[in-house]
């Protein structure tokens, strides 16, 4: 059984038909990437998975259970963590409070402390800034904090929406290294990116989405050499 499966998902924003029958699968332990250009429906796909928007039809199966009409706060507690586009750090909470928010549903103080240590292990920079207000961090630091915050819930599936957005190449490199490292330690990741080249390099498999439809899918290494993909996304 796949950890995540989308079956013929149709999502609308009022009259706008954003997802026109998306189906995809993520297996346990994989990095799967969803690439596509602006407005293709990548973020909408992630929002539909985590319950921020409800699909009109189709199903989202998480570990075989249909979660397609479950509100976001419930899904968050059942093992899916979503790092939203634009990072969405709480600007006037401290870095430490932002991390604590990630473990809001966790009652065990010791577990929270352990997870925070784990986050510091991946992102030592975050540790140096615990009492700083989240909103005063740099873009790269905020992205690290956003991923760290998601890890605090100890998810089974991590949804990442354009983690490289607006970051300098060195930082992007670091973020992708961490993504690979997290995956090596067992984390299943669904990665949305416009930075197709880098995403396909770290991903096992990829899907290409275009105006709300999956137009291509395959191994990361195959897509990266595919003529059409190269033309549209890697030029």
């Amino acid at each position: 059984m796949s950890i995540l499966e989308l079956k013929d998902i149709q999502t609308y924003y009022g009259g706008i038909h954003a997802l026109k029958g998306i189906s995809l699968k993520v297996e346990k332990g994989e990095i799967v990437t969803l690439i596509g250009s602006n407005g293709a429906g990548k973020s909408t796909a992630l929002k539909t998975i985590c319950g921020q928007v409800q699909p009109k039809s189709g199903s989202v199966l998480f570990n075989g259970k249909n979660i397609s009409s479950q509100p976001a706060h419930v899904t968050a507690k059942t093992g899916i963590a979503h790092v939203p586009e634009g990072r969405r750090i709480f600007p006037r909470l401290t870095v430490k409070e932002n991390l604590e928010m990630g473990a809001f549903a966790v009652k065990d103080k010791k577990a929270i402390q352990d997870r925070m240590e784990k986050v510091f292990h991946y992102f030592p920079r975050v540790k140096e800034r615990l009492s700083q207000k989240g909103g005063t961090m740099s873009g790269g630091e905020q992205q690290m904090l956003a991923i760290g915050r998601a890890l605090m819930s100890k998810p089974d599936l991590l949804l990442l929406d354009e983690p490289s957005m607006g970051l300098a190449p060195v930082i992007v490199e670091q973020i992708f290294d961490i993504i690979t490292e997290l995956n090596k330690e067992g984390m299943t990741i669904l990665l949305v990116e416009q930075n197709a080249f880098q995403a396909l390099q770290v991903a096992h498999r990829g899907y290409v989405i275009q105006t709300g439809e999956i137009v291509m899918s395959g191994q990361g290494s195959d897509l990266i050499t595919n003529e059409q993909v190269r033309e549209a996304y890697l030029a």
């Binding site: 985590c50 921020q52 509100p71 976001a72 706060h73 419930v74 968050a76 507690k77 963590a81 979503h82 939203p84 969405r88 709480f90 600007p91 006037r92 909470l93 928010m101 990630g102 809001f104 549903a105 915050r149 819930s153």
Partner: peptide, 14 residues
């Protein structure tokens, strides 16, 4: 405070 700052993201935190 988190809901006041960003309601959607607060929901993502459970």
């Amino acid at each position: 405070r988190s809901v006041a700052q960003d309601r959607d993201t607060a929901a993502l935190m459970g």
